[in-house]
Simulated scan of single mutants.
Amino acid sequence: MKAMPGRIRIIGGNLRNSRLNVPDLPGLRPTSERVRETLFNWLAPTIAGVRALDLCAGTGALGIEALSRGAAAVQFVEPERAAAEALRGNLARLKAEGADVVAVDAMHFLHGAPRPFGLAFLDPPFALQLWTPLAQQLEQGGWLADAAQIYVESPRGQSLALPPNWVSHREGHAGDVRYALYRRSQSVPLS
């Protein structure tokens, strides 16, 4: 389930009911309101003050929702220049503080100097099949805080090879989309 290009709504926090302009770009698939509402209900006890990484940001709806609900800062990474410019425009219009947008490829970004984040959103374009390499680089590259939470959105039925110390916390389905929240453990769980 995805919102159609045009405008989408922030559903909670101090930016509640704000509208985001969404460019009409191939492969841009904003996370639905229903999924965002469920995710941020899960995150409610831990979102305040967290530093978040919105990797493959697209519209930035996940990161902006996090800012709206009390995240201290969000790093947005979006390689598509038109999407990055739309995101910058939305952030400026909303006067969202603590946001930084870089218009680079996610893997290129993750090969830079790491800064640990307490929350990461991993929702790459489905057609690119980037879950495994991005997850591995997040984990091995020093991008995640010790007890970080990682949100992963993927096609329903898609088999993902995620780091073994990412422990499934909660998951759901909406149409053809599977969404899941993982918690990073310092040890690999026994099977």
Rank of each mutant, 00 (worst) to 15 (best):
H108R: 15
L134V: 03
L43P: 07
V35Q: 00
L181F: 01
G157Y: 06
M1H: 12
G175P: 00
P133W: 05
I47R: 01
V177W: 07
N41E: 02
N17K: 13
H173D: 14
A84W: 04
A48D: 14
A180T: 09
R19G: 02
R115K: 11
G12E: 07
N14Y: 09
N165E: 07
A148P: 05
G141C: 08
V188R: 03
L62I: 12
C56P: 06
G60T: 05
L62K: 03
V188T: 14
A103E: 10
A92T: 09
L67V: 02
F109D: 06
R93K: 15
A61R: 00
V50P: 00
G63R: 11
L134R: 05
G89A: 06
V35C: 04
R93W: 14
A57L: 09
G27V: 14
E171I: 09
R184K: 15
L144G: 07
F76V: 13
E65D: 13
R29I: 12
A52E: 10
Y182K: 11
L122E: 04
A66N: 03
R93P: 03
A52C: 14
G98I: 03
L144I: 11
W166N: 09
R34E: 12
V167E: 03
S18L: 11
D146M: 06
I8N: 01
D24Q: 10
H108G: 06
G112P: 09
T59N: 06
